[in-house]
Design a protein around this nucleic acid. Sequence first.
DNA 1: CTGTTAGCGCTTTCAG
DNA 2: CTGAAAGCGCTAACAG
Lengths: 339, 339
Amino acid sequence: MEPVNIKHLARELNVSISTVSRALRDSHDIGAETKRRVMELARRLNYEPNPYASSLRRQKSRTIAVVIPEIANNFFSLAINGVQTIAQEKGYHVLIYLTHEDYGQETAIIRHLLCGRVDGVLMSLSAQTEDIAHLQEVQRKGVPIVFFDRVCTELETARVTTDDYNSSFKATEHLLEQGCSRIAYLLISPNLSIGIKRMQGYIDALQKHGREADDRLVLQGSHDPERNYALIAQLLCSGQRPDGIFASVERLALTTYQVCRDLHLSIPGDLKIVSFSNLETAPLLQPSLTTITQPAFEIGREAARILFQSFHPRQRGVPHQQVILNSTLMKRASTGYSS
Amino acid sequence: MEPVNIKHLARELNVSISTVSRALRDSHDIGAETKRRVMELARRLNYEPNPYASSLRRQKSRTIAVVIPEIANNFFSLAINGVQTIAQEKGYHVLIYLTHEDYGQETAIIRHLLCGRVDGVLMSLSAQTEDIAHLQEVQRKGVPIVFFDRVCTELETARVTTDDYNSSFKATEHLLEQGCSRIAYLLISPNLSIGIKRMQGYIDALQKHGREADDRLVLQGSHDPERNYALIAQLLCSGQRPDGIFASVERLALTTYQVCRDLHLSIPGDLKIVSFSNLETAPLLQPSLTTITQPAFEIGREAARILFQSFHPRQRGVPHQQVILNSTLMKRASTGYSS
DNA sequence: CTGTTAGCGCTTTCAG
DNA sequence: CTGAAAGCGCTAACAG
């Protein structure tokens, strides 16, 4: 079948190629009648411009990349949704890349993006990332980049996060108000910006209420579920059993539920739990869980907005702004619903 | 900064452009020494070929599209993960598009793909889709398409699904074995292939055990959560209250939990619930929920595999194969854990 | 207002 | 084994 490209249209209409090209976009500069005829035929033949020819010529791809550690995680799914909303609105296409928390993959992916493939990058760091040479390279090549959630503090660029410190502070206070006196903190990957901020909120809240953070109550989880289970079980069986738990990621809260079930501990009777969680449905399933929910959709949307702003020619690079959106602390039934 | 392209490399090395191009890919046909020198310099200068120039010339984009109704849904997130795994392995890039269950958006998206933007499409239909002209157009243009989960039965192409009929049949039998005699069925969007198959499994299982499906126990939900809540509440308050519920989608099961909590009904005491659910963590939060879990990751992976097979020149189009993967029925604690 | 022309960066014949 | 040259489809000066 004959390819239906701009040349084809031009021949069919007895006008030049450039006239067609302009009629399809420039608008003013082309006779109204000619324009109409071109549009007409284009629609009739289902003409779609070849995006790659255009990208090659204009050095612009109308495509952005979203680079995230994983996707089977409600936070990132919702964030992508937010990104997509803006991208669709602006007529941009979205490439998705997963690092699987792996530094090597992260660098490889970034490398593949630095050849004009995308006009900008939205990124959340992998937990492994420490060296940021590949990210500096992005900036050096003039590709706008906006970080969200797991941001890179060493780089001068826009960041969108949640109020990790404040919400952790409040969550810890909430446990204190509930009468908890020994509150454990469960974390993963200590070299992520958010991990540090959340932990600081926890520590400071304890301090404010005249309590010291106890090292023995701070548990560093891993990505191995069985190890996490063992660690938490050990914590709950020890003589120093906590009466409150603050999980900095959902997964650790769920493992805690599992452990409690197996140990016949009741929640919130024996143990009160607060957790960061972006599973809006969690409370429907488990009313005893108090959650801190991040505005994931809005974070994605906001990050995309900032990125698109930087595409405007009046801008020079990405403004080094920092947007902080508020999480919601959803206090759950503190009585009843023993499990 | 000077652009580092193939021409640049050629000049630097005093060889021709085509020699560089070949050295970077062809391999055999170029002197070993020349090849080494080219590779060396390319690495040193961080050369990355411009993908769009290559796509334009080769009429191949090394990119595929995944078109799905929504992403904040664990099934699709996991499926994307599976797709990504294969794509990454093959050196392909993945564009994501969301239809938001909207027919208009679906056609618009498809239109944007039919101009060489992608080498193939992986798709799950929007709930609204009835007319399939846009999908036929995909085939007509020779773009391979593979459906997964919400497949299009009217089109001759590959499909990857789960055993919706069988698993529904078994789930219904499971409720019967638990002693349920009035089992309700909760569904959404009756014009999706999976909705029909699942419902048939339910009906046939009842029939096998000498029971008729009762229309009053079949509840058609919508995408409006409040309406769903009202419908389910009404069902549970009616004189004909069911003692078992089979939810064909997770969301309806969750709403049922909500209703039960508000009505002080206990699960599984007063009501046993089975639901399709791809939230692997659901049972950690709510041990009373029996789930049918689809192998979402594997579905995505399998669909991608089939798509990539069709890229091999020996193939002509996508083989019209149908792959059915098995779901897992996870029977939960039928005693205890009242909520 | 419209046509001519020169590329964007890369691949791929076709000659040497 | 290597080079010259044409061209993928589109855009954007520059001329008329």
